[in-house]
């Protein structure tokens, strides 16, 4: 165990983010067991596994979104650039600005398209109108939705289709220039065409961001990710190169899952 930890510490410069012996409890229920894994910058890591395996719980530990659950408890460390994000001195508001999140269901605010993307800038104290306008445009372009909405930025975001709403939510997350982008099944509520757009988008975004994506869809994991991690019953069973995981998994459970024998 000690050797493993030492290795982790030596590896830090190479990794943007990592978890070390992470346990997570909902009240009495232990939802994560001793999860240790690391994420390289400018790579896409996919977390796969059957429902209830802890992959969403894990991703929500990475920006402390689970803090919102009153009876939850975390043991272990989550490191971002070598600093433990659960240490008491960490400002969780600043953390979430660096570690952005896209949720399963598109959740735009009931505001205009422009206001949705500008929101993250406003709450972070940016008032310069020209700057905000430029950043909104830049973010919408990055999220590949600019052409569809540029003529109706003042319309309500709730009038967009589900796929457009999700790309808007991605633009909203990108506007504050996060370093890591967490995506919790970002395409599971979308149709195949919208899903394809999101996947293409992930391909482009990984040039600039560390992306961690939870997905139910193994083809999606195979298509978009560099690294795949398989979770089962709250444990990280195995992680590695996506190609390796899908062709030569080391563990039997992984093989059973990806060949569709359960889950």
């Amino acid at each position: 165990m000690n050797r493993l930890l030492q290795q982790e510490e030596q590896m830090i410069p190479e990794y943007k983010m990592s978890s070390e012996n992470l346990d997570f409890y909902y009240g009495e229920f232990k939802a994560l067991h001793n999860v240790t894994m690391a994420f390289k910058p400018c790579e896409v890591t996919a977390l796969i596994g059957p429902s209830g395996c802890g992959k969403s719980t894990f991703i929500r530990c990475l920006n402390r979104m689970n803090d919102l659950i009153p009876i939850s408890r975390v043991d272990g460390k989550v490191m971002l650039d070598g600093n433990d994000i659960y240490s008491p001195s960490v400002d969780v508001v600043m953390l979430r600005r660096k570690v952005g999140m896209v949720f399963q269901k598109p959740n735009p605010f009931p505001k205009s398209i422009f206001d949705n993307v500008a929101y993250g800038l406003w709450v972070n104290g940016i008032k310069d109108k020209a700057f905000v306008r430029d950043r909104v445009e830049e973010s919408l372009k990055q999220a590949a939705i600019w052409e569809e909405v540029k003529d109706r930025l003042q319309d309500t975001a709730l009038g967009l289709s589900g796929g457009q709403q999700q790309r808007l939510c991605i633009a909203r997350a990108l506007a504050v220039k996060p370093e890591v982008v967490l995506m919790d099944e970002p395409a599971s509520a979308l149709d195949p065409i919208a899903t394809q757009k999101i996947e293409e988008l992930i391909h482009q975004l990984k040039e600039m961001y560390t992306i961690i994506i939870v997905t139910h869809n193994m083809q999606q994991a195979a298509r978009v990710s560099n690294v795949t991690a398989f979770f089962y019953m709250g444990k990280l069973i195995e992680s590695g190169d996506t190609d390796t995981i899908f062709t030569r998994p080391r563990k039997k459970q992984t093989e059973d899952y990806i060949t569709g024998r359960f889950g």
Binding site: R96, M101, K105, F109, Y119, R172
Partner: peptide
Amino acid sequence: VPDTYREASLGLGATKWQTIWRVVLPS
């Protein structure tokens, strides 16, 4: 007010109060 609004706002680096004032209360 759906929790997803609160999560989205907090996820962008808004404080709890900003979330209440700008997102939760208007809704």
